[in-house]
């Protein structure tokens, strides 16, 4: 190996380490805090020392019924959002990809929907929930989360469906498929990675959503983990042991899902985001 090559490799690795330190250290720092004795967290040292490592914060956090209920709420709401988004977006993407010639209009709607300041939607959604007596219900939160996830999900899925060759449709239709069996026998299996990506996107965006969840949930019966986190950090005296453990618990599912769907994710998100 030449000197030049060694120089190149070490420059690349040093830059990589620096940039990933910037990205990962804030997470690692809180992760460490969640494993440290609460008294040690505030000591101001960079490394707490092996002896003060403990699972106490997690024991306390998971021992509290509050945290468990909020995590459960987040799981239920995010799962329901994922299923509903997948269902609605699949049908819409199928229709616009194959039959309805409204691609131009649909992209306009997608872009416009992103431009609408969502903070303005809080009052109409609140009033709507009030009218239907749906305040503090899973359904109202799920509806709003589907609204948030739907435009981008639809657009991503459509780009996957567009990539399934039309020849397959014609062959399937001649062989006796109808429009519904064409969808689930031919197009969905071909576009399966797209479904994974959209499911991930819908789950994560619902799991992390705060604004609508905070106004539509009136009690801990429906409040999500993000609402709980907000409650924890807006207090006067912040218990960092509890906060860091519940923050890590709120991050963990997204990171685990991310690791599982990684293989399809990057290509999928990019095709949805970048496609004209």
């Amino acid at each position: 190996m030449t000197m030049r090559k060694i120089g190149y490799y070490s420059a690349v690795y040093i830059l990589l380490i620096l940039s990933f330190a910037f990205l990962l250290v804030p997470i690692i720092w809180v992760f460490l805090a969640s494993l440290t004795e609460p008294r040690q967290i505030t000591s101001g040292s960079l490394w707490p020392g092996l002896r003060s490592l403990t699972l106490d914060s997690y024991r306390r956090t998971l021992g509290s019924a509050d945290v468990r209920i909020h995590l459960r709420n987040s799981f239920v709401i995010a799962s329901m959002t994922t299923i509903a988004t997948l269902l609605i977006a699949t049908l819409a993407a199928y229709s616009t990809s194959r039959f309805a010639r409204i691609s131009g209009a649909s992209i306009t709607v997608v872009v416009l929907s992103q431009m609408f300041p969502y903070v303005l939607l809080m009052i109409p959604f609140y009033q709507l929930a009030l009218q239907f007596n749906a305040l503090d219900s899973y359904a109202s939160i799920v509806f709003t989360h589907v609204v948030v996830a739907l435009p981008f999900s639809f657009w991503m899925l459509k780009s996957y469906f567009d990539n399934v060759p039309r020849d397959l449709d014609e062959a399937a239709l001649i062989d006796g498929c109808n429009y519904i069996s064409l969808l689930y026998r031919v197009i969905l299996p071909c576009a399966a990675p797209g479904l994974v990506v959209v499911a991930f996107f819908a789950f994560v965006s619902s799991w992390g959503e705060y604004m609508f969840a905070s106004i539509l949930s009136q009690s801990k019966q429906t409040a999500t983990i993000t609402v709980l986190l907000q409650g924890y950090i807006s207090g006067r005296r912040i218990e960092w042991g509890l906060v860091s453990a519940s923050t890590i618990l709120s991050i963990a599912p997204t990171v685990i899902l991310f690791a599982l769907t990684q293989r399809w994710l990057v290509a999928g998100l990019m095709s949805g985001a970048v496609k004209e």
Binding site: F20, P26, E209, I225, L229, S250, V255, V266
Partner: peptide, 20 residues
Amino acid sequence: IALVTWVIPIAATVVLFSFA
């Protein structure tokens, strides 16, 4: 792993930086 900062909840990101 690069996308990991994008997938975590914004509320959690705020906690990370408030703590830091």
